[in-house]
Design a protein around this nucleic acid. Structure first.
Lengths: 215, 215
DNA sequence: TTGTTCAGTGAACGTGTGTTCACTCAATAG
DNA sequence: CTATTGAGTGAACACACGTTCACTGAACAA
């Protein structure tokens, strides 16, 4: 229906609004400690809703956590599409990618903080979900390196190890950007140099090792 | 004093025994979640002591956490002395060092798990203490690289960045050894290759960059 | 032998916890 | 217009929480 009064709100809209408020409240509360240390009642109070209402949206705090993992990585993957798109040139791969990542971390600080924390300290299922997402991204980076780089110069094993090295490093960098946002410029500057060191190693890799891959 | 009955226990000994039991209980309980999520009463119950007795040893769980950080890194630094000692040769630096680290992680799993978790998810002062210790180790590695390697070939800034890269990587590797102890052999194997990649990058570094350091 | 020290006790407090249940009452469907 | 649905309510439960306080009794110093 929805006739006059522009402020009418459908039932589904209202529910989604509360759901978002719960997600945001949990994100904010967990920021001062972590998911396992906050309570359903704290979240409900912060949202301005009675504790029982929580169950209309999530069966437990752990499931809430999985939802947060989901939306964090949904956003992160969109950002990665930008990275692949803006870095077709191998030359300025680093200079093209790092700022995009840094921007995304800055614009989604609370989500990255959540991921960084819960990856090691969250409930087992949450940790698992996060590590799985990171593994998927590593795999994607591997195929991307294999495709755009010299695929037959390195063994697929070594490409996987390189991708893992890069992803691990970027995770560490993201942790630092989250932990100390004021030093973003310096952190980025150092990370750029370090990523270069790493890629120099990759480029000079096979030339120093007896070849056994290449097919 | 202390005549017959070999089982006599001095007052100080008894206190130290309880203190250790509290530390171990906290370590064990936190392993299933994290420090901020456990309670003083859980720890006391696990030790088999009344909650109030806790205060005879630690003013709060946070101070308990700082004590655990302390003893973790005391042990870790002893291990690092072994590493420096067993790796005088630049050639087998990696093969000499990694097994020592892996052994130490295996023999002190709960401490490493604690450090890995609380580094990102612990109370602020605990996080701070851990990051400070890691920074100290990075600084030590820097001076060690500068001393044993070609000190005037690379700028001290770049040496610092390389040390940071190595320490960050080893931290990540330790996290993995803790998370999945059954895959130790594979994790170590991959880490060895990845560390080689990294060092190849370091060795070929300045030759690819316009020299501005070197004095 | 006598007096002190202090690790550990046990009761008590106000408050926070997850989860249950029967309920209200506005948005929807028929 | 009427019936149904379901997001949010509020009371109640049994229990866990940190912290206080006065206490006990064995190890100790004198």
């Amino acid at each position: 229906m929805a006739e006059d009064e522009g402020t009418t709100e459908s039932r589904a809209e209202r529910k989604e609004r509360t759901r978002r408020a719960i997600l945001d409240a949990a994100l904010a509360l967990a920021a001062d400690s972590n998911l396992a240390a906050i309570s359903l009642r704290q979240v409900a109070k912060q949202v301005g809703v009675v504790p029982t209402a929580f169950y209309r949206h999530f069966g437990s705090l752990e499931l809430l956590g999985l939802a947060l993992v989901d939306e964090s990585f949904r956003s992160l993957r969109l950002m990665l599409l930008d990275v692949w798109r803006h870095a077709p040139e191998y030359r300025d791969f680093i200079d093209g990618s790092l700022p995009i990542v840094a921007d995304h971390v800055r614009d989604n600080r609370s989500h990255y903080a959540f991921i960084a924390r819960e990856r090691v300290a969250g409930p087992p299922r949450v940790r698992e979900a996060i590590n799985h997402e990171i593994a998927l991204i590593t795999r994607e980076l591997s195929t991307d390196i294999a495709r755009s780089g010299a695929a037959e110069q390195y063994s697929s094993t070594d490409i996987g190890l390189l991708a893992d090295l890069i992803v691990s490093f970027v995770v560490t960098m993201a942790e630092r950007l989250v932990e100390d946002p004021d030093s973003e410029a310096r952190t980025l500057d150092q990370a750029r140099t370090q990523l270069r060191m790493l890629l120099v190693g990759a480029l000079n890799w096979r030339s120093r090792e007896p070849a056994d891959g290449g097919r």
